[in-house]
Amino acid sequence: MNWARFGKTCLGQALYRHRSTFRNASKAAVWSHLELSYFRDIIPDDVIHELVARPQPPETQVLRAEILLTTPSAFVLPSDWQGSANRPEWQASLEYIEVESLCLSKYRQVMREYIGPAAAQLVQANRIGTFRAMETAVVLYRDPALAIDWNQIHLCELEAGSFNGFAQAFDAVLREISPDSDLAAVFADLDRMRTIPRWTFNDPVVEGDAAVGRKGTATP
C-alpha cells in the first residue's frame, strides 16, 4: 500500500487474486495474482529495479513483468472511482489477449472507435465498474517455463455470476452509438485479429488506483 515511495509519477497500485477461469485455451498453469502499478508518463529506473529486478520473497515467484500502455479512448474510469468494495457481487475480469502483430494498428482502431465508446456507456450505466484496455509495450521479464503469451490485458469489474461474455451488452450499446455500422463485421474482425489464451475472474485484494481516474482518463 506504500506506493507513494515510487515517486510523484506513481498514481497507485492494485492487486488481484485469481478465483476462477472463464475461458482457457492454454495448458499453462494458472498464476495466483496479478499486480498493476500505475504511472503517469515516466517509470523511474529504481522503481523498475525494485519491482522487477531485485530478489523477491521466497514465497513469491514472478512469472512475467511488463510495461503496458493504455489503449487510446478505451481506458475508462469514472472520475469518482473508489474501487469495487461497495459492489461485493463484482469480480475483476482479466482478459489476456494475443493480437496478431500485423493487426495491432487495426485492432487499436476498432477499440478506439467502437469498443471504448461502448464500454464508456456501460460504465456510465453502472453495468461494469471500469474498462481498462492496456497494450504490452515491452516485456521486462518472463519465466522461461511460462508457456503462454499475450500482448493485451483488458480489465473490468462485473457481476461474474450472470456473465456470459460481452457480445450482447456491447451489441446493444453499439447499435445506439453507431446504428449504421455492420456490427457483425466489427466482431468478426476482432475474432480474426486475436485469440484469448486466458480469461479469468479475480478478487480485488488492493484497489489503490483512485488517482488514475482523476488524471485525465476519466469519463465525463
Rank of each mutant, 00 (worst) to 15 (best):
F6P: 05
K8S: 08
T9Y: 08
C10V: 05
Q13F: 15
Q13S: 13
R19E: 13
S20R: 14
R23A: 15
R23I: 13
A25D: 12
S26Q: 00
A28R: 00
V30H: 15
W31H: 13
V52G: 00
R54A: 09
R54V: 06
P57I: 02
P57W: 04
E59K: 15
E59T: 11
T60K: 15
Q61P: 03
T70A: 14
P72S: 02
S73P: 00
W81T: 05
W81D: 07
G83W: 00
A85Q: 05
R87F: 05
S93M: 03
S93K: 04
Y96E: 09
I97K: 02
V99S: 04
A120H: 11
N126P: 08
G129W: 05
F131H: 07
R132P: 05
A133F: 13
E135K: 01
V139W: 00
Y141W: 01
D143Y: 03
A145H: 09
A147R: 12
A147M: 13
I148G: 02
I148S: 09
W150H: 09
N151I: 06
E157A: 06
E157N: 10
L158C: 11
A160F: 10
G161A: 12
F166A: 11
A169D: 08
D171R: 15
D171W: 15
A172Y: 14
V173Y: 01
R175A: 09
P179A: 08
D180T: 10
A184Y: 09
A184P: 03
V186N: 01
V186M: 11
D189A: 14
L190E: 07
D191M: 13
R194M: 02
P197R: 01
T200N: 03
F201M: 00
D203S: 08
E207V: 10
A211P: 07
A211C: 08
A211I: 04
G216W: 04
G216K: 04
A218D: 02
